[in-house]
């Protein structure tokens, strides 16, 4: 996993609640066996009309969001399926940070494991950001080191992150590698408890 310390980037706003992973990456694109190249299919059914043309009404098709790396979303973002294709698609499209008042559990985990930073801010803070970014170019800075997000004018907010993920993301550590260092403990556990699943 690549490490994450601080970044400044363009913001895209998506003021919809309960955006599910079926929308983030529709099922017809889940048949691929690679991790890469999903960005072109991100929000496919919303981004494109049935004739394949971009739907101008969709938030991410607004010219002001071009090249955005921070996504402001609303309540319960990423609900539904466990498909990690959702964060892969968001990342491949260019997003490194998602800010929302709440996330679905599995989706949040999946983001963290891929080095995407899911930030929970209050509903009030998120609506300020949604307003600032709606239909116009807007930039923010996200510092994981300081656990802070801010813009050049008046927005400033602190966020929380589990100390484990704080470390993991800052250092870009490989989780499996870390776990494998506990091989001894795993073996002991197996010796003590394992009656075998079958």
């Amino acid at each position: 996993m690549s490490s994450f310390k601080e970044m400044t980037g363009k913001v895209a706003a998506m003021d919809r609640t309960n955006v599910d992973t079926d929308q983030i990456i529709p099922k017809q694109f889940l048949k691929r066996i690679e991790k890469t190249g999903f960005g072109q299919y991100l929000f496919y059914d919303w981004r494109f009309k049935s004739n394949g043309e971009p739907d101008e009404k969709f938030e991410l098709n607004h010219p002001a969001t071009k090249g955005a790396s921070i996504l402001i979303a609303n309540e319960n973002f990423g609900c539904g399926s466990s498909r990690e294709h959702a964060p892969w698609a968001l990342q491949d499209y260019g997003f490194r940070v998602i800010i929302a008042p709440s996330f679905a559990d599995i989706f949040k985990q999946n983001c963290l494991k891929n080095g995407i930073l899911p930030i929970v801010l209050s509903a009030n803070q998120v609506s300020q950001l949604l307003e600032k970014a709606a239909g116009q170019e807007y930039e923010m800075t996200v510092s994981l080191e300081q656990k802070r997000v801010y813009d050049e004018t008046d927005f400033r907010a602190e966020f929380e992150i589990h100390p484990y993920w704080y470390q993991m993301l800052l250092n870009g550590w490989d989780e499996i590698e870390l776990t494998l260092q506990l091989e001894q403990n795993i073996q002991e556990y197996e010796g003590k408890f394992l009656s075998g699943a079958r």
Binding site: K35, S82, R83, E84, P87, I106, Q109, N110, K113, N114, H162, Y164, E175, I176, T179, L180, L182, I186
Partner: peptide
């Protein structure tokens, strides 16, 4: 409980998962 593909890989490799 359901997990993502990174966690699938983690379980395949270690038969364990980090969970809060």
């Amino acid at each position: 409980f359901g997990i993502g593909t990174s966690e699938v890989e983690h379980v395949l490799a270690t038969q364990t998962l980090w969970q809060t």
